[in-house]
Design a protein around this nucleic acid. Sequence first.
RNA 1: GGAAGGUUGGCAGAGUGGUCUAACGCGCCGCACUUGAAAUGCGGUAUCCCGGAAACGGGAUCGGAGGUUCGAAUCCUCCACCUUCCGCCA
Length: 429
Amino acid sequence: MLDINLLRNEPEKVKKEIAKKNVDPKKVDDFLSLDEKWRVSLKAIEEKRGLQKKLSEARDIEAAKKNKEEIKSLEAQLAVLEKDREIAWIKIPNLPDADVPAGKDETGNQVIRKWGEPRKFDFEAKDHMALGEALGIIDVETAAKVSGARFNYLKGGAVLLEMAIVKYVFDVLTSEKTLKKIVKNIDKNYSVKPFIPVLPPVMIKPEVFKKMARLDPGQEEERYHLPKDDLYLIGSAEHALGPMHMGETLEEDKLPIRYLGFSSAFRRESGSYGKDTHGILRVHQFDKLEIESFTVLENSRKEQDFIVAIQEYLMQSLNLPYQVVAICTGDMGGPDTRQIDIETWMPGQNQYRETHTSDLMTDYQSRRLGTKVKRKDGGVEFVHMNDATGFALGRILIAIIENYQEKDGSVIVPKVLRKYAGFKKISST
RNA sequence: GGAAGGUUGGCAGAGUGGUCUAACGCGCCGCACUUGAAAUGCGGUAUCCCGGAAACGGGAUCGGAGGUUCGAAUCCUCCACCUUCCGCCA
């Protein structure tokens, strides 16, 4: 949620900014009108409560009884107002940063840079499904029988390759030495504090999910819910990493706090029927390495730049061609102030496909989570949060299988992963 | 799944219906004493909301929600979490 003072003091600015995100500016007026009503109601009730105390002290039981009835009816009104006000508040998204390209939808996204050349094959390149099935490492048919559409079994070399990637990324992000190399392009004096490896829970409570601004109206359809226990399956490790410090006030010298999580991610993919039905590009369950970091406000943009630099370092070390995309105002997420995606070249589809995202959320999430930082000068403010993909393992496996395929249908293991995988090539047996 | 005990301010911990504006202590901050420090003494030390330029005023908060009462940290109901035990279990 946005800062209440910003909404009250600069509504025109907020309206102008959210319009860029295709959000109706009227939502600001809706909120402010409810806020005003709420304030009036609150003031009235507080006066009556003060009176109730005095009457009670004076043992004026008759007057107190009467006053109590009035308080009760006012409280009922206030509760309704409070709820409506909160709902209206949440509907207002974070404001886009100044350098975010303006645009209505994904056509407004801008490729900022490209790295690597799509490989020219001297044979007909196959897609990951054809390769994976032939190699016996991807099986969607059995998964369809056992679990339904949009599920998959990974087997053999694909499994070992995934594990190799996981271990490799954990090695990179926990090494100060490697991070120092990466940060040079951003600001050589910036913090290279290593990431803390995390295996998070994959089920979380609804109220926590809401505080992360990931279960707001319109998003529930995308989530798996376990009604018996009222728990949700996470759609990303972000959902369990982001709330790790909710309700806490962190000391400034503890920041930045950086986590690297590994978990399965669960998505209903409602509304995407018929889209990407082939292969394992869009599935209900996949594993993902996720980056989450907490910083002071003046560092959060630099932190995002650093995170993107890490993503690119990893991509380059795997020698996968990619492009970095600045997501435009109309296509970015509600809690984001700046979103940068990476799209990886996939020869099987002859196009770049989204594999990474990096979200700068500023204090939009931390305000509802109650995650604060106590500055050295004694001031307390909300921390800034960044969240980003380390590797979405299903999709990066697709990229590796398709980019590293050989004429005979085998797949070469990227050099940097060989010592982790223990083999150089995946062949049919 | 069953049972018992617990959850109070930064920490520790008292408080079983009005004197709670939450004791005592520790920690922290300020001042005094001191060449400096320690010790000592005095004072101050939670968060959030509303109003206010500010000083300040009002309100809420004793795990959470609801209830009883003129009045709740205290009584009642439900829930969550923690500790321990039994059962089951990777």
